[in-house]
Amino acid sequence: QQTIKLTAAAGHPPVFLWVKTLDEVFIPEVDRKLAAGGKYKIEWTKAFGGTLVKLGSESKGIADGVADLGVVSTLFEAAKFPLQNVSYYTPFGTDNIELMSQTIAGLQKNIPAMADAWNKNGLTYLGGMALDSYHIWTKFPITRIEDLNGKKISAPGPAANWIRGTGAVGVAGSLNTYYEDIKSGVSDGVVVFTTGAWGAKVHEVAPYVTKVNFGAQFAGGIAINKRRFEKLPPEVQAAIREAGDKWTAEYAKAQSALVDTRFKEMAAAGAKISELPEAERKRWADALSPVAKTWAADAQSKGLPADQVLNGYMNSLIKAGTKVPRDWSK
């Protein structure tokens, strides 16, 4: 039996399900498959929570060989994975996590430039993951978009585009700062995904939870160092690939279940959860600037087929039966 040493890394700590399932689904699945074959055994070193590679440099860390494989958060590496971030520029999509990762996987299969992002960065893509749908947590109730007028809302990065046009002022921040920002009054609320909001305990300071459903967002995947992968015995390669598929499916299932749990826990903790009426959701979407077009123009100028990605993306959401209040490709 041959022993192979592999180091798995992630910028996020294992409280996040995509890291937890890397540790508890992906790795055991590889081990199980190889144990069945009996020829190879992997000796894992695990370094999560940014102790080896930081968020924002995961792809470089893996490509350099500092780690062999791990989670790459494309959300935090937008310059390297511009097309993978399409969902962040097309808000009000689907809240179906699995549909989201399948949609991106389909685009990566059909549009070479999208798959190339991984190869060109020295990586082999093994599976993808989406964050659960974004909603809004505020100190005040929201029933119409006018309620946001003049309010300060934490909305970092691309999410700032989901706020601009509503009359609210966007404030920067991260999961680490939301709690203090809202508690102290630096902002009056935050646009964030449910499982992240629970982790940051946002509902303690912003108890009004309005389900706007900005949509689930593709945020990254598991990737392995390309050269290292190609040198592995075929049997090990196959085990790793299959474990990647299993991880993708299991993560999506587990994360969806977790969202329901988190909402229940928040309600039990006193949060006032309500759903934004469909008509208001449409008014909100219409109030925004054509952000997807801005994004596509920017990427096209860099020689990337962003229009094709945008069209393909909207088409596959609509084809899957998603009721989108605004078709961003139009």
């Binding site: 409280v15 929570g49 680490n176 982790g199 305990k201």
Partner: peptide, 13 residues
């Protein structure tokens, strides 16, 4: 404390 709250799923407050 904020970091611990995150890692342990406990209330920062």
């Amino acid at each position: 404390m904020i970091l611990y709250g995150f890692l342990s799923d406990q209330s920062v407050g």
